[in-house]
Simulated scan of single mutants.
Amino acid sequence: MIDASSAGTPSAASPSTDEREAEVLSGLTKLALEMARTFQDRGLAALAAGDLDRAGKAEARFSTLFLAIRRAVALTLRRWREDAAAWPGAVEADTAMLSELMELAEALARGFHAQALAALAAGDLDRAGDAETRFSSLFLGIRRAIALKARLRQQREQARRDAEIRRKARQDEKDDRRQAVAQGVAAAIAAVPDADAQERLTAELREKLTEDERIDVDLADTALPIEALIASLCRALGLPPLGTPPAGGPAAAKAGADGAGAGPKGERRMHSLATGGSSTRTGSLSRHRLGITGRPPAPDRQPRPNLLRPRGPP
């Protein structure tokens, strides 16, 4: 009786199985290349001696190995398309192998070409036909190897473009998060009514955003909410977090920063901290855009108490 718990479709190959198969394929391909070199050498020697029959047998073995290697390279390419990270250097190694095989095949083809021309000059069409058959077989193998190399180059370039797109997307996400966090903390600073305190807090925030290497790690951590990052920086500055980024996350914060030119002067200068140009390499903000003055309180709101200086007697 079959155990129902063990029935079902077979599971996918484990990473260790894939690695083992890759090692086997790579090892056999190297052995095939070594044998191909030997048969090519024997074929050239037979051609030099004028032994067309022996040279033809050597060429047949060489071409069989050439075909097997091309198919192994094509299989590696298909696997590499699925997971390029799991096959480091595969494209470069296979391209070099194909280039060597093409050179070996070309040398043999030139030898058979010379034999065919000599036979034609002597009027020996049978011998010329045998030489042409070997020449055409090698020619076909070279053409297919060239096509395979072109696919390898195309796949390598596509992988590089995909990697650059992913890198740019990660950097843009980090920049958007940095902008949103800077905007939220700047809003908390702007709520402090004392201008001197604002300047001091702005300088401290600028130092954290431009000189603290840990801030990039924090801002790049997409698992940590932006609100938590704002609260953390506010606590480091001795401020309660006053606000959060606009609804919609970093993209909305960026859009709001782009249209922040219509408010009062203090509000626009506060936005200069939130939207200061951040370098895609270091994540640092432009120092010349970090000047901030306060944002005047709204007319219908009572002034907030000074959170940073003890109040004197009335």
Rank of each mutant, 00 (worst) to 15 (best):
M1A: 13
S6A: 08
A7Y: 08
A12Q: 09
S16G: 06
R20Q: 15
L25M: 11
S26P: 02
G27Y: 05
L28V: 11
M35W: 09
A36S: 12
A36R: 00
F39T: 05
F39G: 00
A49L: 07
G50Q: 09
L52T: 02
A55M: 02
A55D: 00
L67E: 06
W80P: 00
A84V: 06
W87P: 02
P88A: 07
G89H: 07
L104E: 08
A105Q: 06
E106A: 12
E106M: 09
L108N: 00
A109S: 11
A109I: 03
R110H: 10
F112Q: 00
A114P: 08
A114R: 07
A122I: 07
R127D: 11
E132T: 11
R134V: 01
S137A: 12
I142R: 08
I142M: 15
R143E: 15
R143S: 09
K149E: 15
Q155F: 08
A163D: 09
I165V: 13
Q171N: 07
K174I: 10
V181E: 01
A190H: 03
A191S: 14
V192A: 01
D196A: 15
Q198I: 10
E199Q: 11
R200I: 12
L201D: 00
L205C: 04
E207N: 15
L209T: 02
T210G: 12
D212V: 09
R214N: 13
L219F: 11
L229I: 03
S232L: 14
P241S: 14
L242K: 14
P250V: 04
K254E: 14
A257P: 02
G259L: 05
A260W: 12
A262M: 06
G263P: 08
P264G: 15
P264N: 08
G266Y: 01
G266T: 05
R269N: 12
M270P: 03
S278M: 06
S278K: 07
S279R: 06
T280K: 11
H288Q: 10
G291W: 07
P297D: 12
P303D: 03
P303K: 12
N306L: 09
L307E: 03
R309K: 15
G312I: 05
P314Q: 10
